[in-house]
Each structure stands twice: as C-alpha cells, then as structure tokens.
Design a protein around this nucleic acid. Sequence first.
DNA 1: AACCTATTTCAAACCTATTTGAAACCACAA
DNA 2: TTGTGGTTTCAAATAGGTTTGAAATAGGTT
Lengths: 114, 114
Amino acid sequence: MDEIEIPDSIRCELVGKGGLNGIVESLPDDQTIEDIVSVARALSDPVRVRVLFALSVQPLCVCLFVAMAGYAYSKMSYHLSVLKEGGLVCARQEGNYLIYYPTDLGRRVVLWIR
Amino acid sequence: MDEIEIPDSIRCELVGKGGLNGIVESLPDDQTIEDIVSVARALSDPVRVRVLFALSVQPLCVCLFVAMAGYAYSKMSYHLSVLKEGGLVCARQEGNYLIYYPTDLGRRVVLWIR
DNA sequence: AACCTATTTCAAACCTATTTGAAACCACAA
DNA sequence: TTGTGGTTTCAAATAGGTTTGAAATAGGTT
C-alpha cells in the first residue's frame, strides 16, 4: 500500500497513524466536506461577507443591501441566494418585503471570525 | 440619508443603530474582509479541505497528496498554492521533498470546524 | 380588474478559477 | 558533470462563477 518513497521522518509518524489510509479514514465524510465547501464558497466574496456581518447586527430587507452596495437588485439577489445555499442566512416575507436574517450557523460563523 | 421606503419594524431598529451608516461603519475594515475572503476561497474546494484536515493530523509531502487524491503533481501543486495564499499551510524543504504543514491559522480553522 | 413596488428568475455575456501537459528548477547521487 | 526524482511554473484550454438587463412573480392598493 505505502510503497511510496518518502522521508523517514514522515514515514515514521505515518505508520503510527495507520499509514495514508489511516489518515484518509480520519477525514470528515463527503457530506460534511460538501457542507464546509458551501459555507466557504458563500464567504468567498467581500460583498457577501459584509452582508452577513450587517445581518448579524439586525435583520434587513433587500432594498437596504442594494442601497448599501450600490448593486442592482438582480445582482444582490444572486449573492443572497449564495449565502442562503451556504445555510448562513434565511428570509421571511413581510408585506411586499423580504427580510433576511442570519441562521444559527450564520451567527456562529460571525462570532468565530470576530 | 435613509429616505428609502422600508417596513416600520426594520426602520425602528435601524434608527436605534445609527441608520444604515451606523451598520456600515460597524463592519470589519477592508483588509479584514479581504483576509476572510482569501481563507474562505482556500476552503471552497473539497480537495483543499481534505488536504488541510490531513495536514492537521501530521505534516505530509506532496507525493502523498498526489497518491491520496490521484491528481497530477501540477494540479495538486496548484491547490496547495491556494491554501498557502490563504495562510492556512506552509512548507519546509527536506532533501528532495517539500513537506507541508498547517499554520496556526490553519490549525485554528480545523479545530473550529470540528 | 388594473396597477404599483419589492424581489426573483432566466439566459446571454463576461470574467475568473481550474485543469492539462510540457518545460524548468532544485537537491542530491553517480 | 550528467543524471534522476520531487516539485513548481507556465501557457493554453476548459469549466465554473458573476454580471447584466429583461421578463416573471407575488403582495398590496386603487
């Protein structure tokens, strides 16, 4: 299995951990990895990070983000949808308005980053 | 400034927080946002997340990642460079080999995700 | 019903990230 | 010094994410 040439220092520590397989098996499962990736993707744009932090202050409607960023509605809507897919925000309807607010995960992420 | 039509519930809470400007000013500064984004970007690919978690078990050389993922060297090298740019990993040379290991930030990220 | 207003959805254009394979680099051995 | 193995770098090709503007939706008003 581990017939690869590697430095002794590494090989030594590696055998004590069940070889490369041991390490691979200790990794988070695929679903968990996917979840991490989708949160990370949601945070990989400056506007989306700002939106999340703003929401951690108080719930806001889309028109305020539009005012804040100077973006078109459709553009802001796209970024909000990425945040939603990452499970960081959700929204409730209030009359004509959609009011976004952070999920528990969204709140925890903000707290940790701070 | 805040001449935008918004629901009263939102407006109410908003004035108590210095209006939209108050919220915008409470946001992290640009440099901090950039740092967050580059970490997030580094984690926004499943292979990179696996590599980081594997490194949090023990330092490893590139050939092991290549074996683990079945990627070409150049491909793995690219992903390692993204992790490096995000400040999550660094490397030391040992003979012919480059041995990657997590930075402090990299370790903290892994601990928090778990 | 007809009409606003806030927001989303869609497809096309656009831009950035990733993959590929070849070539370059570097440390070491013969 | 030539050779070899591990790794990176580069440029071209490809895939994937973002922007744009127009059209669709949905709730409220007249």
